[in-house]
């Protein structure tokens, strides 16, 4: 038995949070999904009716980053920057960070934060899920 029945790699959703795009990567990311994501993000930045000023990529659920995914992440950040948006990589696991350094992939030029809230703070925004301080509005 092989995995070839699972050839349909899932697309990664891109959420808009005001002028920030939030992308959450989870588990096994296929190469084609990573490439699709790269295209989706630049397309969203360039064609969104509202301006996009920042991109936060949450990789806390990713258990390995190899040179392929590392290159895609660096290219996403470089493309976003050319389109006037800043990218922050959030939540890298310590084991992944140690491995990347040993692999020789230190991703210079990629801003990082320990989690999504800090990434948003770095971009000058409020946390992703603020406590419901004004319940009369939400419900």
């Amino acid at each position: 038995m092989t995995a070839s029945s699972a050839t349909h790699a899932n697309a990664v959703p891109v959420l808009a949070l005001g002028d920030i795009l939030l992308i959450t990567l989870q588990g096994e990311l296929h190469d084609t999904s990573a490439e699709q994501l790269q295209y989706d993000i630049s397309h969203r930045i360039a064609h969104s009716p509202l301006p996009v000023n920042g991109v936060v990529i949450d990789i806390s659920g990713v258990d390995i980053v190899d040179s392929f995914l590392g290159r895609i992440l660096a290219e996403i950040a470089a493309t976003a920057r050319l389109l006037a948006a800043q990218t922050v990589l959030a939540g890298m696991r310590p084991a992944v960070a140690i491995t990347l350094v040993e692999l020789g992939l230190t991703l210079p030029g990629l801003d990082t934060a320990l989690n999504v809230d800090r990434a948003l703070a770095l971009l000058g925004r409020a946390p992703a899920a603020p406590p419901p301080t004004r319940p009369e509005e939400g419900a």
Binding site: S4, T7, A9, E28, D31, V65, A95, I98
Partner: peptide
């Protein structure tokens, strides 16, 4: 592409079963 993902998963699982620590697993799977 899908085989790459499957191979990573199988190596991760085998390394875990053999008692590899998290960092070593991460390096090996990478």
């Amino acid at each position: 592409d899908a085989d790459l993902a499957w191979v990573r998963q199988q190596v991760r699982k085998t390394a875990t079963d053999l008692g590899f620590g998290l960092i070593q697993q991460t390096k090996l799977v990478t």
